[in-house]
Design a protein around this nucleic acid. Structure first.
Lengths: 144, 144
DNA sequence: CATATATCCTATTAAATCACTAGGCTTTAT
DNA sequence: ATAAAGCCTAGTGATTTAATAGGATATATG
């Protein structure tokens, strides 16, 4: 019942891009240094985000990545589901077609639906822009 | 981000005991047949529940297991946390002492706390007695 | 007391997943 | 032409998962 490093790193990566959303592309090397995550692993993760159209890449020198849309447009759920695969607490809830034979008589299915709703209620509501806001709130506190 | 089979089986096991809560001990063999889970695996899972005092065992012929308390006394969270270890969505939230160095400046921590609260809000509210009720509701629907 | 029936306990294992690392290929600004 | 970036695929060690296996121990019943 854990969010994997892949999902967490993807979130930090997107947040890093949002915080450095100047128009200039951001290099993997910079993100790697700031977030203390290996360049190679970041490369792999950002490739998923790129293929999904969540970020735009610029190749060659002075290249890098930038967000494809505004931070408000990305929910945490979008990012985590893309990189984690699914946030459903049990496999039988993943697809439209539920293959489990016990389904009709499955009491716990109701429980899993409640859990799934609770999880979705959080991740589909919080956006990247919220994370950016929270970040600046924290910075404010440090100033005193 | 999944509940493992161990946790799901533990829940079905406890529900099976609750539905057969006659005072007579219930044998693993019966649970295994009803739930279609191997006896050996059930043995292992119920051993955890037994050590935690969630069930009481009777050894020897005519032996088996029964609930130590009433179904209302068990939340789904108790059972899942015991068998799964923890339901926290990230490792850095598990212990009282949080070892992560980024903690102070960690924006996502706030998100994980929201997620953790949402999950706990469900599993700490639903009891074994609720599952029993839901089960009988379903049975009613089948009668028509 | 003997026996069958149950729980109890520890070890092993095949498969899958996770969290990376490695190395070369392609594009493009200078 | 060159160097700096992203792009792509494969490999790998460690850990976890989901069991199986096999015997030890307790006890109700005849």
């Amino acid at each position: 019942m854990k969010i994997s490093t892949k999902g967490r790193y993807a979130l930090r990566l997107m947040l890093d891009l949002a915080l450095n959303n100047t128009g200039e592309p951001v290099r993997i090397k910079e993100i790697s240094a700031r977030q203390e995550i290996s360049e190679k692993y970041l490369e792999q993760i950002i490739s998923t985000l790129n293929k999904a159209g969540y970020v735009k890449s610029v190749r060659g020198p002075q290249g890098g990545y930038r967000l494809a849309k505004e931070p408000e447009q990305y929910t945490v759920g979008m990012i985590l589901r893309l990189t984690e695969g699914s946030l459903a607490p049990v496999a039988c809830m993943e697809d439209e077609v539920n293959a489990c034979g016990r389904q009709a008589s499955c009491v716990t299915l109701r429980l899993w639906k409640m859990l799934d709703d609770a999880i979705s209620g959080v991740v589909d509501k919080v956006t990247l822009a919220d994370l950016v806001d929270w970040q600046s709130e924290m910075m404010d506190n440090y100033v005193i």
